[in-house]
Design a binder for these strands. Structure first.
Lengths: 246, 246
DNA sequence: CGGCCGGGACGAACACGTTCGTCACGAACT
DNA sequence: AGTTCGTGACGAACGTGTTCGTCCCGGCCG
């Protein structure tokens, strides 16, 4: 309320505040996230928390999405890389790591949304990448297929989590589900025969079954699909997750 | 500027305006999109275009994301389902349809972002679904694998487009790419051997090569990965794209 | 025919992300 | 030592999505 004395006073009151730094900002963001949820992690709130204005944050952080990506990388430290008692086929262990990754993302789906857009290059993300590449190598997957494969695997995992970002309250999800079910059953049998025939299958299975099956599909495909012969004359032509230049 | 006479005057001047309807709103949105781009398609702008206030739109449209989904379905009419001279393997035709789908999405990547979150159940989306199911059926893919497979295929395609939503200006993309390249080359060789060894592969290939390979991976995987035995006691337990309940 | 009522329309407001112009401070150079 | 310069901090502003309370009009019931 009081415009002037705020900064001076609160600075004196709490001199132990971390200096305005990228790490400090991200750390504060994680703290607010853990305490009150992602929706409270706003630029204005973080600025208030750090005794400054929103504009000041933009010196260290390009956008909210980039901040989210940094926060996500922090959270990615919780991913279980050495899947509990690493027993079983290498495929099962890959799926185990990916499931752990998804579990972390499911806790804050909106973060996954940002991660789809802003490419994470943080420490914990690189660790995850390394672990997956190691597992694929262990499985004898040829290098290029392994490299492109982890990209695909993580894209699917991230997208799966991101899809839930809006389905916040339970009623919303059910309503959407009902809409889809109705749309599927009301479809004209003559113009959309396959849709009608497979309506049940489209809605079948638990989310877990579908996820696991999806990962198995990817792994089987990655193993059995050779990458195109490399063209040595082309470089700097691709970006992760499918690339940017059409 | 003039607060009162605005509505009365402009209503009289342009009595042919479409009445406030969901279709009218979506149609206006598409028009603005085509004329000035997606960033101009805002609730306030649409309200202005329809001679009303932003709040009025929420009677017919739940949110911006839902509006985007409706707009996208309209655009999906442009997807080429009978891939030009439908010659070639059924797999090639599936990839052709998906490529056409991606092409439409690439024109407005932010729409794809919404489509990941809000499930589209529009007419044109159902047409696309039907076509893909027909092609998979033609390829002899078992029903459940086909049903879950199209889900996976469209998820990957949509996510691929959505990833580009922020990479608006060219400088942005290049900068991100450079960051990633540097991060990949600066990684510690001892803690991340695979990452170092495969750095080149991770960045290799054109976006087109990667996309096509990705779709082939999915198709091969879908064909070769049997779905789990159905548990008849469970239903209403899944949502598309991987489901909502963990 | 008169009163009631329900839902669409709307004005105003709130919190948000982001940008711009300005200010102050410390370092570096002369 | 004095001056200059760049960079971080900041206040204010714009445009955004979304919500709330109110109003008004049209159909329905008595």
């Amino acid at each position: 309320m009081t415009p002037r004395p705020k900064n001076q006073a609160s600075r004196r009151e709490r001199p132990a505040k971390p200096a305005l730094t990228r790490e400090g900002i991200v750390a504060t963001a994680v703290a607010v996230l853990r305490a009150e949820g992602l929706e409270k992690v706003t630029m204005r709130r973080l600025a208030q928390e750090l005794d400054t204005g929103p504009a000041s944050l933009y010196v260290y952080v390009a956008s909210t999405a980039e901040l989210h990506a940094a926060v996500l990388d922090e959270l990615l430290g919780e991913v279980d890389l050495d899947q509990a008692a690493s027993q079983g086929d290498w495929r099962e262990r890959v799926i185990g790591v990916l499931s752990s990754y998804i579990t972390v993302l499911f806790a804050h789906p909106a973060l996954a949304r940002s991660a789809l857009t802003v490419w994470p290059s943080g420490e914990n993300y690189l660790r995850l990448l390394e672990r997956l590449l190691a597992l694929l190598d262990e499985g004898g997957v040829p290098p290029v297929q392994a490299a492109w494969g982890v990209d695909l695997l993580l894209q699917v995992a991230t997208a799966t989590a991101a899809e839930q970002s809006t389905r916040g309250q339970s009623g919303d999800a059910d309503r959407e589900w009902d809409d889809l079910t109705r749309a599927l059953h009301e479809v004209d049998e003559r113009t959309h025969p396959h849709l009608r025939a497979l309506a049940a299958s489209l809605l079948a299975g638990t989310p877990g079954q579908r996820r696991t099956w999806g990962f198995q599909v990817l792994l089987n495909g990655i193993v059995h699909t050779p990458a195109p012969h490399p063209d040595h004359s082309s470089h700097h032509s691709a970006t992760p997750h499918g690339g940017t230049r059409p």
